[in-house]
Simulated scan of single mutants.
Amino acid sequence: MFGGGGMNPRKMKQMMKQMGIDVEEIDAERVVIETADGDLVFDDAQVTKMDAQGQETYQIVGSPSEVESGSAAGAAGAVEAADADEDTADDDAIPDEDVALVAERAGVPQSKAREALEDTNGDLAAAIAALE
């Protein structure tokens, strides 16, 4: 927000406090931003809340994964269930988190990512390379 350049962090905090700006770190495990085109899901993001004269602003730092609109709510449960069932999972099934990862890295829809993973027998690197 401010171009602190090489300013001492303690001095910056003092200045912000004098201007009535409170900064608070939030221990967020997951942040979901829902859009018309799809959802952005931040896992283990750094979230900072700034309160300046009654106006709250949230800053999210992290790398999001893109999922289909509305599917982010169930994605956490699906990831946890996939992790728990990983040993008993069918070898032919492509995990949804692998599809999401390939789709994000290659910048393609999840349907194309799933097809590429099926063509490469679940090899993430080969699927990404084939899509690029």
Results as ranks from 00 to 15, higher is better:
Gly122Asp: 07
Pro9Ala: 02
Asn8Tyr: 01
Lys17Ile: 00
Ser111Trp: 01
Lys49Val: 08
Asn8Met: 12
Lys112Glu: 01
Asp51Phe: 00
Asp39Ile: 15
Ser71Leu: 15
Ala75Gln: 14
Ala106Gly: 10
Gln110Pro: 14
Met1Cys: 08
Ser63Val: 07
Pro9Gln: 06
Thr48Val: 07
Gly107Glu: 15
Ala52Tyr: 06
Gly107Met: 01
Val31Leu: 05
Asp98Leu: 08
Val31Asn: 00
Gly74Ile: 15
Ala130Lys: 15
Ile94Tyr: 03
Met7Val: 15
Met15Asp: 11
Gly70Asn: 14
Lys112Cys: 04
Met19Ala: 13
Arg105Ala: 12
Asp85Cys: 10
Ala93Asn: 11
Thr57Met: 07
Ala36Trp: 00
Met7Phe: 08
Gly107Lys: 11
Ile94Thr: 13
Asp37Leu: 09
Leu124Val: 13
Asn121Ile: 09
Lys112Val: 03
Ile94Gly: 09
Val41Ser: 09
Asp87Ser: 11
Ile26Ser: 05
Ile26Val: 14
Thr120Leu: 08
Pro64Arg: 00
Glu86Tyr: 02
Gly54Thr: 02
Ala127His: 08
Thr88Ile: 03
Ala106Arg: 02
Asp43Gln: 11
Ile60Asp: 05
Ala129Lys: 12
Ile21Trp: 03
Pro9Glu: 12
Lys112Pro: 00
Met19Pro: 05
Ala113Arg: 01
Lys11Ser: 12
Asp85Phe: 02
Leu131Thr: 06
Ile94Phe: 02
Ala127Thr: 06
Gln110Ile: 01
Glu118Ile: 10
Ser69Leu: 10
Ala52Gly: 05
Arg105Cys: 12
Tyr58Ser: 02
Ala75Trp: 12
Asp44Asn: 15
Asp119Arg: 15
Pro64Trp: 00
Ala75Pro: 05
Gly122Cys: 09
Ala106His: 08
Asp43Phe: 03
Val102Lys: 11
Ala84Ser: 09
Glu68Cys: 01
Ala113Tyr: 00
Ser71Asp: 14
Gly54Lys: 13
Ile60Thr: 05
Asp43Glu: 12
Ala28Pro: 01
Thr57Phe: 03
Tyr58His: 09
Gly122Thr: 13
Lys11Thr: 14
Ala36Arg: 10
Asp123Val: 00
Gly77Asn: 02
Gln55Thr: 08
Met7Asp: 04
Leu131Ile: 09
Ala76Gln: 15
Gly77Met: 03
Asp83His: 13
Ala52Thr: 07
Gly74Leu: 11
Ala89Gly: 03
Gly38Phe: 04
Lys13Val: 14
Met50Ser: 05
Ala76Arg: 13
Gly70Ile: 01
Glu115His: 04
Asp85Leu: 14
Tyr58Phe: 11
Ile128Pro: 02
Tyr58Trp: 05
Gly107Cys: 13
Asp37Thr: 13
Asp51Thr: 15
Ala113His: 01
Gly20Ile: 07
Met50Glu: 06
Lys13Cys: 08
Asp39Ala: 13
Asp43Met: 10
Glu24Asp: 10
Asp39Trp: 01
Ser69Asp: 04
Glu34Arg: 15
Ala106Lys: 15
Ala126Pro: 11
Ala45Arg: 09
Gly6Thr: 14
Val61His: 06
Val79Asn: 09
Asp87Pro: 07
Gly6Phe: 11
Asp44Val: 11
Val79Ile: 04
Ile21Asp: 03
Asp51Trp: 01
Lys112Met: 10
Leu101Lys: 03
Asp98Tyr: 04
Ala72Arg: 00
Asp37Ala: 04
Leu101Ser: 08
Gly5Tyr: 10
Gly54Cys: 04
Ala93Ser: 10
Ala130Phe: 07
Gly3Pro: 07
Val61Cys: 02
Lys17Ala: 09
Ala28Tyr: 05
Asp98His: 06
